[in-house]
């Protein structure tokens, strides 16, 4: 399959964004227009006068990618050029569920025919690993650091896929970099369904999470295997498919110990109790989705 994201971009070794963008383009195909809010993916792929994109691509601002996508889609329709062209937004977690929340909510409510892919690496990586609304409970970031009186980020992740389901989206799916075929298939399906569709991709960041650059896929896989990142599809509000884990379910420690951002939990007094709280989050997922 042809890669529509050229090599030679400025991403880190083991970069999750580069993988996610490549898989997204494999699913969407070359007849697409990509909208990219501000973030690592934008910066590393388009230092003027270079570009890594072999599809039409536009970056406007941090918080408006869904609105820009709305405009692209409306223009294609008005000019009679829509045809089978897919409009695809790829944004980070901050651009999607924090600063871009108004924009994505409006675009989904209006029912534009586009696909939004959230590449969730669970913090503001481009600016130096500050917490976002997608940062998990007890992760240490530069603005939610662990310290003498803190175990790190004090709130669980915002459940963005559920919010997009609540918008009446015909197709919402979660996916992970550890499962490229699953991701490509879900993006393809999302882009072929008319209306606003949403893919939420769990994307471990070697730099921000603190693991070896060769371990991106392993960390991603462990998130799924612990139940912390369930893979599922929701069509017209109903859960239609879940990736079952069965006997391969692992305790959350297996995932946490791979990453610097959780290392304090294994050293601090009371850390075991905090890990138990994270296990409870995974257990809830296992119960709710029947993993």
């Amino acid at each position: 399959m042809k890669s529509l994201l050229a090599p030679g971009h400025r991403g880190c070794a083991g970069c999750c964004d580069a993988m996610a963008a490549k898989f997204t383009l494999m699913g969407a195909g070359e007849d697409c227009i990509v909208i990219n809010p501000t973030g690592c993916l934008e910066v590393m792929t388009t230092p003027f006068p270079e570009t890594a994109w072999d599809v039409p691509w536009i970056h406007s601002l941090f918080e408006n990618a869904s609105a820009v996508g709305s405009g692209v889609e409306a223009a294609l329709k008005a000019l009679g050029k829509k045809g089978n062209t897919k409009v695809v937004v790829m944004g980070g977690d901050g651009a999607t569920l924090d600063i871009g929340m108004r924009s994505i909510s409006g675009a989904f409510e209006r029912g534009h025919d586009f696909t939004y892919v959230c590449i969730d690496n669970e913090a503001y990586m481009n600016t130096g690993v500050q917490r976002s609304g997608a940062t998990p409970f007890n992760a240490s970031t530069t603005t939610s650091p662990a310290g003498k009186v803190s175990y790190g980020n004090q709130r669980p992740k915002k459940d963005m896929p559920a919010i997009m389901v609540a918008h009446g989206s015909p197709y919402v799916a979660t996916t992970s970099l550890a499962y490229p075929k699953d991701m490509i298939a879900k993006v393809k399906k999302a882009t072929e369904i008319e209306g606003p569709t949403y893919i939420h991709c769990h994307a471990p960041c070697t730099t921000g999470w603190g693991f070896d650059t060769s371990k991106t896929v392993e960390v991603a896989r462990m998130a799924v295997h612990t139940g912390l990142w369930p893979l599922y599809e929701v069509e017209n509000g109903e859960v239609t498919k879940v990736r079952k884990l069965g006997k391969s379910i692992k305790p959350v420690e297996e995932y946490l110990k791979m990453q610097r951002r959780f290392s304090h939990l294994f050293k601090m007094e009371g850390g075991a109790g905090e890990i138990a709280k994270i296990q409870a989050i995974a257990d809830k997922n296992i119960e709710v989705y029947g993993l």
């Binding site: 227009i33 909208i35 536009i58 406007s60 601002l61 918080e63 408006n64 869904s66 609105a67 820009v68 996508g69 709305s70 405009g71 692209v72 889609e73 409306a74 223009a75 294609l76 329709k77 008005a78 000019l79 009679g80 050029k81 108004r102 924009s103 909510s105 409006g106 675009a107 409510e109 209006r110």
Partner: peptide, 28 residues
């Protein structure tokens, strides 16, 4: 004729939508 009207959720998105639309070749 040949026009789409987007009822956006804010002025921020009103103009942002026109960034995409104008770049796609529309008079905005």
């Amino acid at each position: 004729p040949n026009c789409e009207y987007i009822n956006v959720e804010s002025e921020f998105s009103a103009l942002s939508a026109l960034v995409g639309a104008s770049a796609a070749g529309a008079r905005c």
